[in-house]
Simulated scan of single mutants.
Amino acid sequence: MLALAQEVLSTPRNPRQEVQALQDTIYVVGGKWRLPIINSLCNGNKRFRDIERSIPGITTRMLSRELKEMEANQLIKRTVTPDTPVLVEYTPTDYCHSFGSIILEMIRWGKAHSEHLKKAAD
């Protein structure tokens, strides 16, 4: 852990730069829906309705807005195939996949946190 901290953090420390990096990350992947959308895409859902069905509680409007933002941030690629009917697919970019280990670590932490709370309640 110390080695990772030394690799990531500035020497000497630059708190302003570190806070800006955290804010940039939260801006790109923050909010209630972006990580579940990334997770859905990485689990093989490519079509709008499949993504929507895989995320309980998300509205059509919200999914549409989030997908547009994610495309603008180069996390996903939108491909339109002009068949009849028109086929629209969303796929995670390599840039999005670079975030994969962080998402897995967040899932791991979330599971451990849940267990921690259960033990504290006993």
Rank of each mutant, 00 (worst) to 15 (best):
R61A: 08
A120H: 08
N14G: 00
E71K: 11
R13P: 07
K119C: 07
P36T: 12
I38A: 09
I107F: 07
T81V: 09
G31V: 02
E66M: 11
L117M: 14
R34D: 09
Q17K: 15
A21S: 12
I55W: 05
T93W: 08
S40L: 02
Q74T: 15
R78A: 14
E18L: 03
W33V: 01
R53A: 07
L75I: 06
L22G: 05
P56N: 08
G57M: 03
N43C: 04
R65E: 07
D94T: 15
S10Y: 13
D83Q: 00
M1G: 08
T79P: 00
C42H: 08
S64G: 11
R108Y: 01
G57C: 02
M62N: 09
L2C: 02
D24I: 03
M106C: 05
R13K: 06
Q17N: 11
L4E: 04
H97N: 14
R78N: 05
V80Q: 09
F48W: 03
I102R: 01
L9N: 03
T60V: 06
P85N: 10
Q6D: 14
A121V: 06
E69L: 15
K68T: 13
M62E: 12
E115T: 14
I102K: 00
H113S: 01
M70N: 01
I58F: 07
E115Q: 13
P56M: 08
M106I: 04
S114Q: 13
E66Q: 15
F48S: 03
R34K: 15
S98V: 06
E115S: 13
Q17I: 09
L35D: 04
I58R: 03
D83Y: 04
Q20L: 12
A3K: 11
W33M: 01
T11S: 12
I107L: 06
A3R: 12
A121I: 05
K77F: 13
D50L: 05
V80Y: 09
T91V: 09
V86H: 05
N45W: 12
S10W: 05
M62S: 10
S54I: 03
P12V: 02
